[in-house]
Simulated assay, not measured.
Amino acid sequence: MRRLASALLALGLLVALPSTAFAHDVLERTDPADGTTVAKLPGSVVLTFAEAPLAIGAQVVVTGPSGTASSGAPTISGREVTQAIAPTAPGGDYTVSYRVTSDDGHPVTGTFSFHATVGLDGSTATAGATVHVRPVSATDDGQGSLLVPILLTIVGTVVLLGVGGFLLLRGREADRSGSASGR
């Protein structure tokens, strides 16, 4: 009986303790890099993550001076997500917004910006253009991501208390019946 209680307590501690399994994927780098100026607009943007994202729900939207400049769906190869840029995209300020699904099933979102002096269409950016950079948060969904570990901890604790109480009562009943039969 005590062995079972000890095993359940050990299992409960494993469930209740935070682990790296709750860590979400993070964006490690982008090409073009966030906040940089490139001489010529590249044909695509590349986002490199710490772990390979899942293909489900991947979205990358490239927005430039003439609106949306994304061309087709993003492709995933290992840890890299590549989004093609339309060949008619002009020079200027670009913002890239992304949402991918990390390998643990949680969404990873963010935004980065860059400036291209010359566009794919050969046009040059207007003088005095500025890049407005919004810092990319590794866990934009961070508040929601804590919900799962908190709920698991609460449920695990309630289950452990319930099982522990049951075993304690069962042990007392066994002691009573053992002492009653010994009379």
Rank of each mutant, 00 (worst) to 15 (best):
A73M: 04
A73S: 09
A73Q: 05
P74Y: 03
P74C: 08
P74A: 10
P74H: 12
T75H: 05
T75E: 15
T75N: 07
T75Q: 14
I76V: 15
I76L: 12
I76Q: 10
I76P: 08
I76G: 02
I76M: 10
S77Q: 09
S77A: 11
S77V: 07
S77I: 12
G78E: 05
G78N: 05
G78C: 10
R79P: 10
R79N: 12
R79W: 03
R79S: 14
E80F: 03
E80A: 15
E80Y: 14
E80T: 09
E80G: 03
V81N: 15
V81T: 14
T82K: 14
T82E: 12
T82H: 11
T82I: 07
T82S: 12
T82W: 12
T82R: 13
T82Y: 02
Q83V: 07
Q83F: 10
Q83E: 15
Q83D: 05
A84G: 01
A84K: 08
A84F: 03
A84S: 13
A84E: 07
I85W: 06
I85Y: 05
A86M: 05
A86F: 06
A86V: 09
P87K: 04
P87N: 08
P87E: 13
P87T: 08
P87I: 01
P87Y: 12
T88G: 15
T88V: 03
T88K: 11
T88A: 13
T88R: 14
A89R: 10
A89H: 05
A89D: 11
A89L: 06
P90G: 06
P90T: 06
P90C: 08
G91L: 02
G91R: 04
G91E: 12
G92A: 08
G92Q: 09
G92S: 08
G92Y: 06
G92E: 13
G92M: 14
D93C: 02
D93W: 14
D93E: 15
D93A: 15
Y94M: 12
T95S: 09
T95H: 01
T95G: 14
V96S: 01
V96Y: 03
V96I: 07
V96T: 04
V96C: 07
V96F: 03
S97D: 11
S97I: 02
S97R: 13
S97F: 04
S97Q: 13
S97A: 15
S97P: 01
Y98C: 11
Y98L: 07
Y98Q: 03
Y98E: 01
Y98A: 07
Y98V: 13
R99I: 13
R99P: 03
R99F: 05
V100K: 06
V100A: 06
V100D: 06
V100L: 15
T101Y: 00
T101H: 04
T101C: 06
S102C: 06
S102H: 00
S102V: 00
S102K: 00
S102E: 01
D103F: 10
D103S: 10
D103G: 15
D103E: 12
D103T: 09
D103P: 02
D103N: 11
D104Q: 04
D104Y: 05
D104M: 03
G105T: 08
G105Y: 03
G105K: 07
G105W: 00
G105R: 03
H106C: 00
H106D: 05
H106T: 00
H106M: 04
H106V: 05
H106W: 04
H106I: 00
P107W: 02
P107Y: 10
P107V: 08
P107K: 02
P107N: 04
